[in-house]
Computed example of a mutant assay.
Amino acid sequence: MANKEFLIESIWATESSFSATTPVHLLKDEWQPSANLDLDVQTAEVDGKRVVNLLINVAVSIKDKEIFKLKSVHTGVFNVTGYDDKELEQITESFCPSIIYPYAREKVSAMVSSAGFPPLHLSPVDFDARYRAAKEGKA
């Protein structure tokens, strides 16, 4: 049986963009926004390493009026060895994104705050539940 190894090599913000359709100073309604979060995970193997991209898109509106949109992509590079294919898939689709997500949440909050809007705190995500649901959907 091979030795199992899991190492985080690096995590960084690969891409970030923020677009304020309605700047703060033009807001007339009370700050009760609705946020639409789109979250995706992309994985690849590059030079024997596992590369995991966490893509976050958020659109915020108030009463059907778009306020801002943001996109944030965070990438993690992991050295994962000694696992079978099923374990490896779960690690890269569930465990790795759960490691990257706190960094992405902080970046999203900072982007929104630096644009002058009240902080946007993304809720925790259960990546394991998302993974299981995706697997059941394919079955």
Rank of each mutant, 00 (worst) to 15 (best):
K63V: 03
W31L: 02
T75F: 08
D40W: 01
L88F: 07
A104V: 12
H74W: 11
L7R: 13
L7Y: 13
I67F: 08
M1K: 08
L39C: 05
K4A: 02
Y131I: 07
D40P: 00
F127H: 03
S113V: 14
F68G: 05
K65I: 02
S113I: 13
T43V: 15
A133Y: 01
C96N: 06
S17C: 01
E5L: 12
K4M: 04
K86Q: 15
E106S: 11
G76P: 05
D38A: 12
E9Y: 02
L37V: 14
A133P: 01
E9G: 02
N57I: 01
A13W: 03
E5T: 15
A13L: 12
M1E: 12
K28A: 09
K138G: 03
A133T: 08
S17A: 04
K71G: 15
S113P: 06
A59Y: 00
I91V: 09
T21E: 05
K63F: 00
S61D: 10
P119L: 05
E5P: 00
H74S: 14
S16I: 01
S98C: 03
S114N: 15
S114G: 14
D40N: 10
N79Q: 03
A2M: 04
I11R: 08
P33A: 04
V125T: 05
P124T: 08
K63R: 12
K138L: 09
G137D: 03
L55I: 15
P124Q: 07
K71I: 12
T14V: 06
V77D: 01
E89T: 14
A115F: 10
H74T: 15
P124K: 02
D40I: 00
G137Y: 00
V52A: 06
L122Q: 05
E136P: 00
A44L: 10
L120I: 07
D85Q: 14
H74L: 11
L26H: 13
W31T: 01
E93C: 03
E89D: 15
S109Q: 14
V125A: 03
V77K: 01
D126H: 02
A104G: 12
F68M: 06
Y83I: 04
P118F: 02
F68H: 10
H25C: 02
Y103P: 04
V73P: 01
K135Q: 11
P118E: 06
I99V: 15
R105I: 05
A104R: 08
S123A: 07
V51R: 14
L39I: 09
T14L: 10
S123G: 00
E87S: 10
L122H: 05
C96K: 05
G48Q: 11
L26Y: 14
K63N: 15
K63M: 02
K86S: 14
Q90I: 02
W12E: 13
D84Q: 05
S113M: 13
L122D: 06
F6A: 05
W12Q: 13
R130L: 12
I91N: 03
K69G: 10
P124R: 03
F95H: 11
T21D: 01
V80D: 06
L120W: 11
A133L: 02
L7S: 10
N53M: 13
P124N: 08
L54F: 09
A139Q: 14
Y131L: 02
G48M: 10
A115V: 09
